[in-house]
Design a protein around this nucleic acid. Structure first.
Lengths: 355, 355
DNA sequence: TAGCCCTTCTGGATCGATACAGTACGCCGG
DNA sequence: CCGGCGTACTGTATCGATCCAGAAGGGCTA
């Protein structure tokens, strides 16, 4: 049998409570006895209070849960996600909390929901989970503090989030390209439609896009491009099955292989944009000359690739998310954070070539 | 008051056990009653059985803990670590388990030890934690299944690990350089000495190096280089404060700025090697021509950088570690896994230039 | 020496669920 | 009409700790 508090208590000849105090409130007993207890614990191989039992009684776990849409394993393939995680991790670490990564595979929604039900945590951070995912209802009903990693569509006074002004940021991208003279424009994005298919899709109105971030960014793209007289219906929309480099390349093919090839391809994330660049390279097209390409997020790789993109402070975003959970500010207004963004112009965008 | 099983039971007019069964063993009650219970739960806002209480009673948590030496936040900066994590994550996900990242800051060992004590998990994966770290004693005393991400110095019949033959792999690196004619050789590595300082250090014998992986790799380097008559004492050892690109560059400076500049720099990880390349670039030195550089791990960036390195299957390593924890093989021999490695020769190594 | 406080330790209640043995009841064959 | 069996549900013990009101004992003041 594994030793418990009681085992140690019996060995020393004190009560269970006293042993408990030896661990959790060392000031409540004499140093001599405390030492005697620790010594006995060592001898018996007692590893200290059982975390599960302790959590049950205390009502605090010492871990925060991070929900990812995509299969947990994807989380680590997107550098932007990794940076965000790093930010949360730093904060959690300072608080002595762990980070519980909760898998939310999309194919089996029920499994993800179960995972959220079973997650022993003190709060949730919701990262890139579409608003309609059932797991969100569970986080809500569990009544734990929850922070979203982007501004949700509906914001109540209790809602906590840390995000950016997606529309405004995307608008600067659109405007930048409009001013460069781009009129034939394609957009590469995931979540344009409900299905996970790769290829051109038609969407009558951005409002039809269900995934918040995608919708806002596309809206912003369109608003910016309107400066050059490009309307929503002029956009060539290419859906990517997932947010990955390979899918970015595949989705871009449908645009690049047209006879009326677009002069610019706007990707909704850097990862997709890198894929678009791959597709260009495979066709011998020069980014910024033959076709302009933009991304979103400014991941480290974007610098090397010379990608024009929107910079947002990913690590800081994570850190703030962690802080909102672990030391929630009194002031409700401070629980809703919008971070600044910048358009970073690099070589992947340039003026339309005159023919 | 938050609703519990009892609340729901009272509302429906059945016993607590029955409600519990409705969630955990749906086959134990009639469909009609089950639906009635779920309906009542929904009405009352009962989110399902409390994970903590359930874990206590069941004795199973549904999460595995991953221990990192370096501050949790570093974990995400090393692509190799990220890949390993991805491998574990995939396995965990399939088992419906979460992944609890446990911070082990090195500056405050006690904090890390507490974190391990408090971690509510079913098993531990120990990743790059030096053998002398106090947290390892705690994992042992907790009596949970534990798998190491490298072969430990002492292997008992119960020990589980998934690693590579570090010495043999490093030997191929040393041999490769020896055959290219390199005789003046520097090594860039973290953990060469106990202190976290950056710069040249002297170590009389590899056996003095406390950190297992570092010791084995250096031993291997030396064995391989011996083929060219290079002895241990001929090696110029440069310690890096951490396993990071920046420290790799800083440590390399001490070697590169000498009058008798080494013709080859062996780094103990790819991340450090990339830093060495940075240092070369800053001095206008050509990798593979003026100075040969090698890494270890074959992270994705190594390909682009043209780095000669040792490939080891990082994702698979993680996946196996996860499998050892979640579905431990009957056969004890199968609990100790050594994966194959390859020397990948790229442009960063070349023959010594004749003067 | 009585009265009081303070420190140190105790015991029982409690956190919220699950395990398991047991009860009630309906149905079947003989 | 009875024993036997399977299904549907109940009740109590239990997981391993923490909380909190209170007891014991020692020292200090009046």
């Amino acid at each position: 049998m594994k030793p418990t508090l009681q085992t140690v208590a019996d060995a020393v000849g004190v009560s269970r409570s006293t042993v408990s105090n030896a661990y959790s409130r060392p000031d409540q007993l004499s140093p001599a006895l405390r030492e005697k207890i620790h010594e006995a614990a060592r001898r018996l191989g007692y590893p200290g209070p059982d975390p599960t039992a302790r959590s049950l009684r205390r009502g605090r776990v010492g871990a925060i849960g991070v929900l990812f849409t995509s299969a947990l394993s994807y989380a680590f393939t997107d550098p932007y996600a990794v940076q965000f995680l790093r930010g949360i991790a730093e904060t959690a670490e300072r608080h002595g909390s762990g980070l519980l990564l909760v898998p939310l595979s999309e194919s089996e929604e029920e499994a993800g929901i179960q995972a959220v039900r079973n997650a022993a945590v003190d709060g949730f951070c919701v990262y890139c989970v579409p608003a309609w995912h059932g797991a969100l209802d569970v986080t809500r009903s569990r009544g734990l503090p929850t922070v979203a990693a982007e501004r949700p569509a509906e914001v109540g006074p209790e809602t906590m989030y840390v995000g950016i002004d997606e529309v405004a940021a995307a608008r600067t991208v659109g405007g930048h390209l409009a001013r460069l003279g781009h009129r034939r424009v394609a957009v590469v994005s995931d979540f344009l439609v409900a299905q996970r298919r790769t290829g051109p899709v038609s969407v009558a109105d951005p409002a039809e896009i269900r995934y918040d971030v995608t919708r806002e960014r596309l809206r912003g793209f369109a608003e910016g491009l309107a400066e050059g007289g490009v309307g929503w219906s002029d956009l060539l929309l290419c859906n990517a099955g997932t947010n990955s480099r390979a899918e970015g390349a595949r989705a871009a093919e449908y645009a690049l292989d047209r006879v009326d090839r677009p002069t610019a391809v706007l990707a909704v994330t850097d990862l997709l944009a890198l894929g678009v660049l791959d597709a260009l390279a495979a066709r011998g097209l020069r980014p910024g000359r033959d076709v302009s390409v933009t991304g979103f997020d400014d991941i480290p790789e974007a610098t090397a690739a010379g990608l024009t993109t929107i910079r947002q402070p990913a690590v800081e975003k994570g850190a703030i998310a962690g802080r909102l959970l672990l030391e929630p500010p009194e002031d409700p207004a401070a629980r809703q954070v919008l971070l600044p963004t910048d358009l970073v112009v690099r070589a992947s965008t340039g003026p339309v070539e005159r023919k």
